[in-house]
Amino acid sequence: MENNGKKTRIVKNIKVDTKKCVGCKACEIACSAFHATPRYSSINTGRSRIMVVADEMLDIFVPIRAGDHTEAECNGRNSYIIDGKEYSECTFCPASCPSRDAFKDPDSGLPLKCDMCESDPPVEKPMCVDACTFGALTYEEREVEVTEPVTTVTDMDEGLKTLIKRYGLKKVMDTVVRVSKE
């Protein structure tokens, strides 16, 4: 994309207003339906790439989107005190990691990552935003100047990397060859 001679790209942003979240999980439901195969054929919030970190007794409701996978746990943790409420160390973290079962496919254990519902044909806005009638999630796009080559990490990239780390490249390739012949 070019704008006045400068290379630009669109950054997609989901703005989260935690005060408006009621914890209904409509975002999780919509996400899991959209990413089901065939599309919308099942509901399973365990497969969702968005998760409401909720603790009603602490008045904490924080929707977080799945980000990159990491093989190692954090070497240190942060907890946050905001307006007198203490948020635990993982509340705002989008990673799928060894320390919790969030953002991992419940069957394969492979990491899940939010893709902002990119699809063909495209959807107007990510499904979680569309489902949130309370305004806790809003979608915006902004154009930013590109300063370095952009690479797109897909679900499949993430999954393959994890499989290779776990089983080794040779075993993964052998399996791909064997399965493709079946």
Partner: peptide, 10 residues
């Protein structure tokens, strides 16, 4: 963490 299936998804 299991699927709840729908008959006519769309």
């Amino acid at each position: 963490t299991k699927d709840v299936n729908l008959a006519h998804p769309k």
